[in-house]
């Protein structure tokens, strides 16, 4: 269990190195958007990002030592939250805009062309504003992203086999490591002890907003798919189905 002996500093440097490269949509965007064209661009980008997300997760120290079942379950639970936090990070210095990729930026108003998406854009923009007010640091951002992944599924069923039990224990120790890492990152900012505690609380509370927006987004995407506004395929389809089939 090398991650338990890893210092918070080392843990952060490993997850900083795991960061996926910048991704481009690489499509000729025809403006104004239609409902179908915007949904297609959004889902094409999400599908590309998902492939990189799997590689990213595998680079989180200790993740690949979890059981394969836990790895799959965690990713299926949190993928949209991870995509949304990444979007917030890219958009943090651009008030009122959502920077999906360097070549795909949307203003709040552009959300008007997709039924029901402006509400989600507004929630994304609100959470992004909170991160802007808090002056979220890159080290904190990477910790939060790892926290989302590792905290995404606290299974209700108790582990049945030794393998499941070991994986569950590893997961809990990994969560300890990532919390330690976030606490360490906050401690570098030159705040008073009380301010550090408050910051940790505020950052952690933002995660519940992200979960909420992700649930809204998941419903929206499955509705768009059901109404044939957009054709969802490939890895994105697999990840979406994992959520819609378990909730219905």
């Amino acid at each position: 269990n090398h991650q338990s002996t890893m210092s918070p500093e080392e843990f952060i440097s490993r997850i900083m190195e795991a960061e996926p490269p910048e991704i481009y949509l690489m499509e000729d965007l025809k403006k104004p958007f239609t409902e179908a064209s915007m949904m297609m661009s959004l889902t094409n980008l999400a599908d590309k990002e998902l492939v990189l997300m799997i590689s990213w997760a595998k680079k989180i120290p200790g993740f690949v030592e979890l059981s394969l079942a836990d790895q799959i379950h965690l990713l299926k639970c949190c993928w949209l939250e991870i995509l949304m936090l990444g979007l917030m990070w890219r958009s943090v210095d651009h008030p009122g805009k959502l920077i999906f990729s360097p070549d795909f930026k949307l203003s709040r108003e552009e959300g008007q062309c997709v039924e029901g998406i402006m509400e989600i854009f507004d929630m994304l923009l609100a959470a992004t504003s909170r991160f802007r007010e808090l002056k979220l640091q890159r080290e904190e951002y990477v910790c939060l992203k790892a926290m989302i992944l590792l905290n995404s599924n606290l299974s209700t069923s108790s582990p049945q086999t030794t393998e499941e039990l070991e994986s569950r224990n590893k997961l809990l120790r990994l969560l300890d490591s990532v919390i330690d890492a976030l606490v360490w990152a906050i401690s570098k900012l030159g705040l008073s002890t009380q301010q550090q505690t408050l910051r940790l609380g505020h950052l952690a509370m933002l995660l519940s907003h992200i979960r909420h927006v992700s649930n809204k987004g998941m419903d929206h995407l499955s509705n768009m798919k059901r109404k044939n506004v957009v054709l969802v395929y490939n890895l994105l389809l697999e990840m979406l189905d994992a959520n819609t089939s378990s909730s219905s």
Partner: peptide, 13 residues
């Protein structure tokens, strides 16, 4: 094999 499983089980190049 699902795509997710495939991506998780392939060794990094």
């Amino acid at each position: 094999h699902t795509k997710l499983l495939q991506l998780l089980t392939t060794k990094p190049e």
